[in-house]
Design a binder for these strands. Structure first.
Lengths: 210, 210
DNA sequence: AATTATAGTTACCACGCGGTTACGCGTCAA
DNA sequence: TTGACGCGTAACCGCGTGGTAACTATAATT
């Protein structure tokens, strides 16, 4: 059952480079040393390949979310946190910066994440579902995450109190903006990396309790 | 010579909805009540239609930029500003908010701007040129603009001093983020409009000199 | 009035598309 | 040994693609 996964991988690669409409079934088959007809032994249609990729990415995203929440339990949550490594372990600003930055850098560098993001970026206007998925994944979820993170920091007295949503916005929006540059122009990766790091540091210095 | 412009308009519309590869020459010709072959009386190829749209949009963008700079002359600029309506006329925070917001709202609502932005969003990974154009247009230029605006406000003592680039970043990045939502999910336009307005107001209250 | 340019038309081209069919060939269980 | 099955192939289908050629109606120019 290896071929099926190879097809999905190759399809994701090409969809993320040339878009769905810009990629043909032969385009997908050729690099695998396979005939186009063989694809139909594993999938019903081109659209189904796309759908399965989306589905799989959604599954992985939810796993990623679950992992996030085990690493960070909210104060008002009723589930008792186990050996969480979230707010409780963040003491210094450098800790925060390093943790946030390594997290950001992962989603920027992980090839699978990058390809899914490119593909979704190009497909976001194709349907209501894809549009909502994009917003949910790259905006709402992340704003919620950082909002809760900051809320925890405030409760611990590590961050100045303020409008949580707005702080999350001012923190995360620049990150997503640099992500866009990074994706479009890989040659500027280093520049973006430094800009994000600088942003995190300045943000920290502006919001920390002295 | 009206047909040529109608073709460009229709092509932009369809490219911005279905992408370049997802749009055929017949798709463009049909709504105009014209045969596909007639398109070739005005254009050499499908690619040329796309290129001309890009070219025209670049022209309009530069006009837009020129207009911006007549409305706002920098302090260290050697060219004497005419009847500028820039910083010099901004007195209260409400003025700033209203001016910035109406500017943002225009680029969000103007159908031509919206379509170009959608088209570029879908095409940004197709070539180095398009990628750079996207970054320049929707990131660098805007950051520069707001940076200069804030610099002027600081010189006038209307805004707390701080890292100009970073202030522009924290101000503009959220705007571009909401622009994305607005574009993807037009049903959330009102929500985004309010969120942007709120952001501008909070940003103002945090950075104004009391 | 004759000519020329323009902007359309219909009919067509070769090709590549997504998708289908008929078949071959190993593998493995009965 | 047999036969079903999984996974591949080559060849093909109908259609739509970008693009072209020949023709025509109209309107402006000379």
């Amino acid at each position: 059952m290896k071929t099926k996964d190879l097809v999905l991988e190759e399809a994701l690669k090409q969809f993320s480079e040339k878009g769905y409409a810009g990629t043909s079934m032969s385009d997908i088959a050729k690099p695998l040393g396979i005939s186009k007809a063989a694809l139909y032994k594993h999938f019903e249609s081109k659209q189904q390949i796309f759908d399965i990729i989306i589905e799989e990415s959604e599954k992985r995203f939810k796993e990623f979310l679950a992992e996030l929440s085990t690493h960070f339990s909210r104060g008002d949550s009723d589930k008792t946190a186990g050996a969480g490594s979230g707010v409780s372990e963040i003491a210094t600003g450098d800790d925060l910066c390093e943790r946030v930055f390594s997290f950001v850098k992962f989603s920027l560098s992980d090839p699978y994440s990058v390809r899914v993001r490119h593909m979704l970026t190009m497909s976001q206007f194709q349907s209501k579902e894809l549009a909502e998925m994009y917003s949910k994944r790259y905006v709402e979820t992340m704003l919620d995450y950082y909002g809760e993170l900051f809320e925890g920091l405030m409760e611990k007295g590590l961050m100045k109190r303020g409008d949580i949503r707005h702080l999350a916005l001012m923190f995360y929006a620049p990150v997503i903006m640099y992500t866009g540059i990074w994706d479009r122009e890989p040659g500027r990766a280093k520049e973006c990396e430094e800009a994000i790091r600088k942003h995190v540091l300045i943000f920290y210095s502006l919001t920390k309790t002295k």
